[in-house]
Nucleic acid binder design. Structure first.
Length: 714
DNA sequence: CGAAAGGCTCTTTTT
DNA sequence: GAGCCTTTCG
């Protein structure tokens, strides 16, 4: 691509951000201001115009998705040379550095990476060993405190020097123990990936020099989300050339509870006084109305640098405020309004997104979508790699690769049941601790000594034989090893015998598919690569965006996305803003930013919905409208109360009062043919349960579902 | 040892 | 209302 093409599609501010290549640079990028374009074009400019080698450029993101998208766009711009760039998440880049250089600090290059669930389990063990009551000291709170310490680069020793409260005293004791357990298991948690890399660079000048010399240019996306450790890391990396370009938007900082620290943006200007600052304020995404409403809300924040966002886009339609009595009504409105948008405004389902503060809100929505038969995809929910069956199989693989991985052993030692229960496990742990060996070694010793009851000793011996046999099979490809493992261990049989066994077995098959992508590599390497990938990936790639479905998503997850139409449900005090933020002004400002992020996702249509009554956690609650709605100038709003106009969305079956009984055959617009299983009267309506030939069994509302009675035998 | 039953808690969750 | 943990019983 010639130089002109790199710069021509850019506005003056964007162009400045791309052309100023030397020295530190801070780009403050409003929503929809072409941030990704600036980053990718800057990289292209560095290579094509400035002659920088791709090998010498690093671009860091937070999510795998962002990294993948950036990689794709760079490949479009640069072709195959893009492959030599370092593009990845903080954690993936650190993991790679630690695997190749970590031995300098005594790290096994095959260290396991423990995720949040694993961490929690290790913390529970730490509590137990420290003789502390998990009821009194909640493991999640400790996990959070330890993670906070690590994010601030505090090792247990450093932490102990600054403990002030009793709680911190406890944290320190657990943190020490926790770190010890990780070390014995030759495992790192996510925070360690960052912390250890920073320490590696700090204590090993040769390694640091190597990387500092390599990375002449460094770019960081979503800089407002970095924590202290991440900022320290990029400062180390940029230590030699100081060509560091960070891009972010303080108004979209919504992860302070993950220890993202807005002060990094302020520190940046202090640490690099020569830094160039560019503001991207032109918005290419939203209508004037939407942008103004968003600005009205965010401008109420006190701790903030003012920005003047503007757009050349049309004024567009007002922001819709919709008030309903119940969340069922709210959900029904969303569904029927989307139907209307699709029919009258020529939008597709995939152009619409419904956003909410807490996952629990998704259920009411899902029910309406299912009843109406409207296609939707729920983002989040139970993530693939967090499913029990996936974690079990991965634990087997991890243990096979590294017998010192105590946590993985604990996870699967009695799955499926082998008669090795709590008591035996406790004795194993005790023995491992006193003899200073791994659990697996303790298990082998105990099996050999035959001091325990023969039945137990036999179980232990059998398990150890299984693992040894599997460990000997590492010349198999990861997929084949997985096959052998689920057969030999009896895991397949076990999982299929359980509730939802088929579905869970399907998940294991899906994992095997992922594993088979590594069949080309030499087996040992392939297993490492596979485990590395699944450790650092939180989900299988979300179904490709081509499928025409409505998106259901939390406000947090929506950051970085855009949709023609956005519905934000639960615009109520207690939900958004969440009640936990009521007594902390800083948290309240973050809630406001969350609302801002939601609204600025929209291109054309915004709906803010509130319900008078809402049932959450079983009991019904009454919430006043969200304070954020009052911040929007009234002239931008169109408000309607559902109870004034129409309480019910237009019924599909109007006119031809459909009467159904169990046994009737029906046709549904989306689900096809099915048989009515049951009819239950509900408030002024009927709930029909239909077993569809293809789509499975669904609950539908008679008045809403596009159902037609058909003759049996179709 | 393992299944079943009661009691407690419940925000967001990039890696 | 559900999931997780602990307790209890066979």
């Amino acid at each position: 691509m010639p130089q002109m093409d790199i710069l021509t599609p850019l506005n003056p501010a964007q162009r400045e951000a791309v052309e100023t290549v030397a020295g530190p640079m801070l780009i403050l990028a409003g929503p929809g201001s072409g941030k990704t374009r600036v980053i990718t074009h800057r990289v292209a400019y560095l290579i094509k115009t400035c002659g920088v080698k791709p090998h010498n450029i690093m671009a860091v993101t937070f999510t795998n998705k962002a990294a993948r998208e950036m990689g794709e766009r760079l490949e479009q711009l640069l072709g195959r040379t893009a492959g030599a760039l370092t593009v990845g998440t903080f954690h993936a880049i650190c993991a790679r550095i630690l695997r190749s250089e970590g031995e300098a600090m005594g790290l096994n290059p095959r260290f396991a990476i423990y995720d949040a669930d694993d961490q929690l389990n290790v913390i529970k063990q730490s509590l137990e060993e420290a003789n502390l009551d998990p009821k009194q000291y909640s493991p999640p709170a400790l996990q959070s405190a330890i993670s906070a310490a690590k994010s601030r680069l505090l090792t247990p020793e450093e932490y102990s020097q600054r403990t002030q409260s009793y709680f911190e005293e406890i944290v320190q004791r657990v943190y020490e123990r926790y770190q010890e357990l990780l070390r014995k298991s030759e495992a790192l948690d996510f925070d360690d990936l960052l912390l250890d890399t920073v320490q590696l660079f700090e204590n090993h000048a040769a390694v640091r020099d190597k990387y500092q010399s390599r990375y002449v240019h460094i770019l960081v996306d979503e800089f407002q989300d970095t924590n202290l450790a991440q900022y320290a890391l990029i400062r180390q990396l940029a230590g030699k050339y100081k060509n560091i370009c960070v891009v972010g938007d303080p108004d979209q900082s919504i992860y302070s509870w993950r220890f993202a620290d807005l002060r990094n943006i302020l520190s940046f200007e202090k640490d690099y006084p020569e830094a160039k600052v560019v503001m991207l304020e032109q918005n290419y995404r939203s209508t004037k109305t939407i942008l103004q409403a968003a600005s009205d809300i965010i401008s109420q924040n006190v701790r903030r640098k003012p920005k003047e966002l503007w757009t050349e886009n049309e004024a567009g339609s007002p922001v819709n405020v919709v008030e309903s009595y119940s969340q069922e009504e709210e959900s029904q409105f969303v569904v029927s309004e989307i139907e209307r948008l699709v029919n009258q405004k020529r939008l597709s389902f995939k152009d619409c997104a419904v956003m909410y503060r807490v996952n629990a809100q998704s259920r009411a929505l899902e029910e309406s979508f299912i009843r109406y038969g409207m296609p939707y995809r729920l983002i989040g929910g139970t993530r693939f790699y967090h499913r029990q069956e996936i974690k079990d199989v991965l634990a087997y693989l991890r243990l096979i690769r590294n017998p010192n991985d105590n946590l993985s052993l604990i996870r699967i030692i009695n799955v499926p049941g082998r008669g090795i229960g709590q008591g035996t496990l406790g004795r194993l742990q005790e023995r491992a601790r006193t003899q200073g060996v791994s659990l697996y070694q303790a298990l082998k010793d105990m099996a050999a000594e035959k001091v325990s009851p023969p039945r137990i000793a036999q179980s232990l011996a059998k398990f150890s034989a299984l693992i040894d046999e599997l460990a000997r099979s590492q010349e198999l490809s990861p997929a084949e090893l997985l096959d052998k493992l689920v057969e030999d261990s009896g895991y397949k049989e076990y999982i299929l015998s359980k509730e939802d066994g088929e579905e869970r077995w399907e998940n294991v098959r899906e994992l095997r598919n992922v594993a088979s992508e590594y069949n080309e590599l030499p087996p040992a390497e392939a297993l490492d690569a596979f485990l590395e990938k699944v450790s650092l990936v939180s989900d299988t790639d979300e179904l490709d965006g081509q499928i025409d479905m409505v998106t259901l998503i939390t406000l947090h997850q929506a950051k970085g996305l855009e949709f023609p139409a956005v519905f934000i449900v639960g615009m109520e005090e207690g939900i958004l803003p969440h009640r936990k933020s009521f007594d902390d002004p800083e948290e309240m400002e973050e809630e406001r930013r969350l609302c801002y992020v939601g609204i600025t996702r929209a291109k054309k249509h915004v709906y803010l919905l509130r319900s008078y009554r809402r049932s959450l956690f079983g009991s019904g609650i009454v919430n006043p409208p969200s304070r954020f709605m009052e911040d929007i100038s009234p002239n931008l709003l169109a408000t309607r109360g559902l109870w004034e106009t129409q309480t019910k969305p237009a019924a599909v079956n109007e006119g031809e009062a459909l009467e159904l009984t169990a046994g009737d055959c029906v046709y549904h617009n989306r689900f096809g043919n099915g048989v009515v299983v049951d009819c239950l009267p509900t408030l002024g309506d009927q709930e029909i349960i239909v077993a569809f030939e293809r789509a499975g069994t669904k609950k539908l509302l008679l008045s809403l579902a596009p159902l037609r009675k058909i003759e049996p035998g179709y």
